[in-house]
Protein backbone atom coordinates (compact mmCIF):
# COMPACT_ATOMS: atom_id res chain seq x y z
CA UNK A 1 0.00 0.00 0.00
CA UNK A 2 2.84 2.40 0.88
CA UNK A 3 4.73 1.45 -2.27
CA UNK A 4 2.20 2.54 -4.83
CA UNK A 5 2.43 6.30 -4.32
CA UNK A 6 6.24 6.35 -4.38
CA UNK A 7 6.18 4.46 -7.65
CA UNK A 8 3.60 6.75 -9.11
CA UNK A 9 5.32 10.02 -8.34
CA UNK A 10 8.30 10.03 -10.73
CA UNK A 11 6.05 8.93 -13.55
CA UNK A 12 3.74 11.89 -12.92
CA UNK A 13 6.67 14.27 -12.77
CA UNK A 14 8.03 13.03 -16.03
CA UNK A 15 4.66 13.35 -17.65
CA UNK A 16 4.17 16.90 -16.44
CA UNK A 17 7.68 17.73 -17.64
CA UNK A 18 6.70 16.60 -21.09
CA UNK A 19 3.44 18.55 -21.11
CA UNK A 20 5.27 21.65 -19.99
CA UNK A 21 7.97 21.13 -22.56
CA UNK A 22 5.36 20.60 -25.24
CA UNK A 23 3.56 23.75 -24.20
CA UNK A 24 6.85 25.63 -24.36
CA UNK A 25 7.48 24.46 -27.90
CA UNK A 26 3.95 25.34 -28.94
CA UNK A 27 4.40 28.83 -27.53
CA UNK A 28 7.62 29.25 -29.47
CA UNK A 29 6.25 28.07 -32.78
CA UNK A 30 2.92 29.89 -32.82
CA UNK A 31 2.58 33.46 -34.01
CA UNK A 32 2.98 36.11 -31.32
CA UNK A 33 -0.19 36.52 -29.31
CA UNK A 34 -1.54 33.11 -30.33
CA UNK A 35 -1.28 30.54 -27.60
CA UNK A 36 -2.19 26.91 -27.38
CA UNK A 37 -2.25 27.00 -23.62
CA UNK A 38 -3.89 29.83 -21.79
CA UNK A 39 -1.23 30.88 -19.35
CA UNK A 40 -3.54 33.10 -17.37
CA UNK A 41 -5.57 29.96 -16.56
CA UNK A 42 -8.51 31.85 -15.07
CA UNK A 43 -11.65 31.94 -17.18
CA UNK A 44 -12.69 35.35 -18.39
CA UNK A 45 -16.36 36.35 -18.09
CA UNK A 46 -16.70 36.56 -21.86
CA UNK A 47 -15.12 33.23 -22.72
CA UNK A 48 -17.22 30.11 -23.08
CA UNK A 49 -16.36 26.95 -21.21
CA UNK A 50 -14.59 24.22 -23.19
CA UNK A 51 -13.97 20.51 -23.00
CA UNK A 52 -10.31 21.08 -22.18
CA UNK A 53 -11.41 21.15 -18.58
CA UNK A 54 -13.38 18.44 -16.82
CA UNK A 55 -14.41 19.46 -13.34
CA UNK A 56 -14.31 16.74 -10.75
CA UNK A 57 -14.00 16.04 -7.09
CA UNK A 58 -12.33 13.58 -4.77
CA UNK A 59 -13.92 12.83 -1.44
CA UNK A 60 -11.53 11.30 1.06
CA UNK A 61 -13.87 9.40 3.36
CA UNK A 62 -11.02 8.73 5.79
CA UNK A 63 -11.02 12.46 6.53
CA UNK A 64 -14.78 13.02 6.45
CA UNK A 65 -15.96 13.37 10.06
CA UNK A 66 -18.97 11.46 11.30
CA UNK A 67 -21.81 13.82 12.13
CA UNK A 68 -20.16 16.81 10.48
CA UNK A 69 -22.55 18.59 8.12
CA UNK A 70 -20.45 21.64 7.27
CA UNK A 71 -20.70 20.88 3.53
CA UNK A 72 -24.47 20.44 3.67
CA UNK A 73 -25.00 23.67 5.57
CA UNK A 74 -22.69 25.60 3.28
CA UNK A 75 -24.62 24.34 0.25
CA UNK A 76 -27.98 25.25 1.77
CA UNK A 77 -26.76 28.75 2.60
CA UNK A 78 -25.08 29.28 -0.75
CA UNK A 79 -28.20 28.42 -2.74
CA UNK A 80 -30.87 29.53 -0.29
CA UNK A 81 -32.20 26.00 0.17
CA UNK A 82 -34.56 26.72 3.00
CA UNK A 83 -36.79 23.76 3.79
CA UNK A 84 -40.48 23.54 4.50
CA UNK A 85 -39.98 21.06 7.29
CA UNK A 86 -40.84 18.26 4.89
CA UNK A 87 -37.73 16.09 4.91
CA UNK A 88 -39.06 13.79 2.18
CA UNK A 89 -39.44 16.53 -0.40
CA UNK A 90 -37.32 19.45 0.79
CA UNK A 91 -34.62 20.30 -1.72
CA UNK A 92 -31.26 18.77 -0.93
CA UNK A 93 -28.27 19.06 -3.22
CA UNK A 94 -25.82 17.32 -0.91
CA UNK A 95 -26.49 14.99 2.00
CA UNK A 96 -24.39 13.09 4.50
CA UNK A 97 -24.48 9.29 4.57
CA UNK A 98 -23.28 7.30 7.54
CA UNK A 99 -22.44 3.77 6.38
CA UNK A 100 -21.35 0.72 8.29
CA UNK A 101 -19.93 -2.56 7.06
CA UNK A 102 -22.23 -5.09 8.72
CA UNK A 103 -19.54 -7.76 8.80
CA UNK A 104 -16.64 -5.75 10.19
CA UNK A 105 -18.42 -2.86 11.85
CA UNK A 106 -16.19 -0.38 10.03
CA UNK A 107 -18.06 2.92 9.74
CA UNK A 108 -17.82 5.49 6.97
CA UNK A 109 -19.16 8.96 6.68
CA UNK A 110 -19.45 10.59 3.32
CA UNK A 111 -21.29 13.31 1.44
CA UNK A 112 -23.46 12.24 -1.51
CA UNK A 113 -24.18 14.72 -4.25
CA UNK A 114 -24.65 14.82 -8.01
CA UNK A 115 -21.79 12.71 -9.32
CA UNK A 116 -21.46 14.75 -12.51
CA UNK A 117 -21.36 11.67 -14.72
CA UNK A 118 -19.86 11.77 -18.18
CA UNK A 119 -22.73 9.50 -19.31
CA UNK A 120 -25.56 10.71 -17.09
CA UNK A 121 -28.85 8.79 -17.08
CA UNK A 122 -30.69 12.01 -16.18
CA UNK A 123 -29.65 13.49 -19.50
CA UNK A 124 -30.62 10.32 -21.40
CA UNK A 125 -34.18 10.38 -20.12
CA UNK A 126 -34.87 14.13 -20.21
CA UNK A 127 -37.59 14.75 -22.81
CA UNK A 128 -36.90 18.45 -23.29
CA UNK A 129 -33.13 18.69 -23.23
CA UNK A 130 -33.21 20.59 -19.97
CA UNK A 131 -30.76 18.16 -18.37
CA UNK A 132 -27.41 18.51 -20.04
CA UNK A 133 -23.69 18.11 -19.54
CA UNK A 134 -21.84 21.34 -19.94
CA UNK A 135 -18.64 21.14 -22.01
CA UNK A 136 -16.54 21.20 -18.85
CA UNK A 137 -18.34 18.16 -17.43
CA UNK A 138 -20.79 19.87 -15.07
CA UNK A 139 -24.24 18.27 -15.21
CA UNK A 140 -26.95 20.93 -15.03
CA UNK A 141 -30.67 21.51 -15.36
CA UNK A 142 -31.62 24.39 -17.59
CA UNK A 143 -34.64 25.40 -15.54
CA UNK A 144 -35.84 27.61 -18.37
CA UNK A 145 -36.54 24.42 -20.33
CA UNK A 146 -37.41 22.02 -17.48
CA UNK A 147 -41.07 21.03 -17.43
CA UNK A 148 -40.87 19.29 -14.07
CA UNK A 149 -41.64 15.76 -15.30
CA UNK A 150 -39.10 14.28 -12.86
CA UNK A 151 -37.95 11.43 -15.12
CA UNK A 152 -34.41 12.46 -14.28
CA UNK A 153 -35.08 11.98 -10.58
CA UNK A 154 -36.19 8.42 -11.28
CA UNK A 155 -33.19 7.73 -13.49
CA UNK A 156 -30.52 9.02 -11.12
CA UNK A 157 -28.91 6.13 -9.21
CA UNK A 158 -27.61 8.55 -6.59
CA UNK A 159 -30.93 10.21 -5.69
CA UNK A 160 -29.17 13.46 -6.26
CA UNK A 161 -32.06 15.53 -7.58
CA UNK A 162 -34.89 17.44 -5.93
CA UNK A 163 -38.15 18.83 -7.20
CA UNK A 164 -39.46 22.16 -5.95
CA UNK A 165 -43.02 21.70 -4.73
CA UNK A 166 -43.66 25.12 -3.25
CA UNK A 167 -43.69 28.68 -4.49
CA UNK A 168 -40.53 30.39 -3.33
CA UNK A 169 -39.53 33.91 -2.50
CA UNK A 170 -36.33 35.60 -1.34
CA UNK A 171 -34.11 33.51 -3.61
CA UNK A 172 -30.43 34.33 -3.87
CA UNK A 173 -29.65 36.43 -6.95
CA UNK A 174 -26.99 33.97 -8.11
CA UNK A 175 -29.19 30.92 -7.49
CA UNK A 176 -32.60 31.30 -9.15
CA UNK A 177 -35.04 28.58 -8.05
CA UNK A 178 -38.76 28.12 -8.57
CA UNK A 179 -41.72 25.84 -8.21
CA UNK A 180 -42.20 23.09 -10.75
CA UNK A 181 -38.61 22.49 -11.74
CA UNK A 182 -35.97 19.92 -10.84
CA UNK A 183 -32.60 20.89 -9.48
CA UNK A 184 -29.40 19.40 -8.16
CA UNK A 185 -25.82 20.24 -7.30
CA UNK A 186 -24.31 22.54 -9.92
CA UNK A 187 -20.75 22.23 -8.59
CA UNK A 188 -21.46 25.88 -7.70
CA UNK A 189 -21.20 26.76 -11.37
CA UNK A 190 -21.63 30.46 -10.61
CA UNK A 191 -18.51 30.33 -8.45
CA UNK A 192 -16.51 27.95 -10.63
CA UNK A 193 -17.06 30.19 -13.66
CA UNK A 194 -15.35 32.90 -11.67
CA UNK A 195 -12.43 30.78 -10.50
CA UNK A 196 -13.71 29.86 -7.09
CA UNK A 197 -14.29 26.48 -5.51
CA UNK A 198 -17.71 25.08 -4.61
CA UNK A 199 -19.11 26.21 -1.26
CA UNK A 200 -19.05 22.67 0.22
CA UNK A 201 -15.36 22.20 -0.52
CA UNK A 202 -14.56 25.54 1.03
CA UNK A 203 -16.61 24.75 4.15
CA UNK A 204 -15.02 21.32 4.54
CA UNK A 205 -11.60 22.85 4.48
CA UNK A 206 -12.64 25.64 6.87
CA UNK A 207 -13.96 22.97 9.23
CA UNK A 208 -10.42 21.57 9.20
CA UNK A 209 -11.16 18.27 7.44
CA UNK A 210 -10.01 18.84 3.84
CA UNK A 211 -11.96 15.75 2.88
CA UNK A 212 -13.05 17.29 -0.44
CA UNK A 213 -10.75 18.29 -3.27
CA UNK A 214 -12.17 20.04 -6.31
CA UNK A 215 -10.32 20.47 -9.55
CA UNK A 216 -9.75 19.72 -13.19
CA UNK A 217 -9.56 16.00 -13.95
CA UNK A 218 -7.94 16.75 -17.30
CA UNK A 219 -5.10 18.77 -15.84
CA UNK A 220 -2.16 16.59 -14.86
CA UNK A 221 -0.85 19.33 -12.63
CA UNK A 222 -3.97 19.93 -10.57
CA UNK A 223 -3.91 18.88 -6.93
CA UNK A 224 -6.93 16.73 -7.70
CA UNK A 225 -5.22 14.60 -10.34
CA UNK A 226 -2.06 14.40 -8.29
CA UNK A 227 -3.95 13.06 -5.29
CA UNK A 228 -5.99 10.75 -7.54
CA UNK A 229 -2.68 9.42 -8.83
CA UNK A 230 -1.63 8.53 -5.30
CA UNK A 231 -4.77 7.42 -3.51
CA UNK A 232 -6.96 4.51 -4.50
CA UNK A 233 -10.36 5.88 -5.46
CA UNK A 234 -13.69 4.46 -6.48
CA UNK A 235 -16.79 5.54 -8.32
CA UNK A 236 -20.02 4.76 -6.55
CA UNK A 237 -21.83 2.16 -8.69
CA UNK A 238 -18.88 1.91 -11.01
CA UNK A 239 -20.68 -1.08 -12.58
CA UNK A 240 -23.10 1.31 -14.29
CA UNK A 241 -20.30 2.75 -16.41
CA UNK A 242 -21.37 6.34 -15.88
CA UNK A 243 -17.83 7.69 -15.50
CA UNK A 244 -18.55 9.93 -12.56
CA UNK A 245 -16.73 13.18 -11.95
CA UNK A 246 -16.95 12.61 -8.20
CA UNK A 247 -14.66 9.92 -6.81
CA UNK A 248 -14.36 8.50 -3.32
CA UNK A 249 -11.32 7.30 -1.41
CA UNK A 250 -11.60 4.88 1.49
CA UNK A 251 -14.87 3.14 0.64
Amino acid sequence: MKQAPTNAVPDKKRRSFFTQAAAGIALLTLAPGVRLVDLALGKKDETAVTGTVRWGMLIDTTKCAEGCVACVEACDTEHGLTGFNRPKTDAQWIRKLELEDEQTGKAHSLPMLCQHCANPPCVDVCPTGASFVRKDGIVLVDKHICIGCRYCMMACPYKARSFIHEELSEQKPHAPRGKGTVESCTFCVHRVDRDHTPACVEACSEAGHQAMIFGDLNDNNSTLTKVLGELASKQVREDLGLNTGVRYHGI
Partner: peptide, 28 residues
Protein backbone atom coordinates in the same frame (compact mmCIF):
# COMPACT_ATOMS: atom_id res chain seq x y z
CA UNK B 1 -39.33 36.35 -11.06
CA UNK B 2 -40.81 33.04 -9.97
CA UNK B 3 -37.19 31.97 -9.81
CA UNK B 4 -35.01 35.03 -10.15
CA UNK B 5 -34.41 37.23 -7.14
CA UNK B 6 -36.22 40.54 -7.33
CA UNK B 7 -33.77 42.43 -5.16
CA UNK B 8 -30.02 42.89 -5.37
CA UNK B 9 -27.88 40.88 -3.01
CA UNK B 10 -27.34 43.13 -0.02
CA UNK B 11 -24.16 41.31 0.91
CA UNK B 12 -23.20 41.66 -2.77
CA UNK B 13 -21.27 38.49 -2.17
CA UNK B 14 -21.35 37.03 -5.62
CA UNK B 15 -23.51 39.34 -7.68
CA UNK B 16 -20.74 39.50 -10.22
CA UNK B 17 -19.62 43.01 -9.44
CA UNK B 18 -17.66 42.32 -6.33
CA UNK B 19 -16.00 39.03 -5.62
CA UNK B 20 -12.64 39.18 -3.98
CA UNK B 21 -12.71 36.17 -1.77
CA UNK B 22 -9.82 33.78 -1.81
CA UNK B 23 -10.57 30.14 -2.42
CA UNK B 24 -7.79 28.10 -0.88
CA UNK B 25 -8.68 24.87 -2.66
CA UNK B 26 -9.26 26.26 -6.10
CA UNK B 27 -7.36 24.20 -8.60
CA UNK B 28 -7.18 25.69 -12.00
Amino acid sequence: FQCHATKPDVNAQLTGLAIAMTRPNCQR
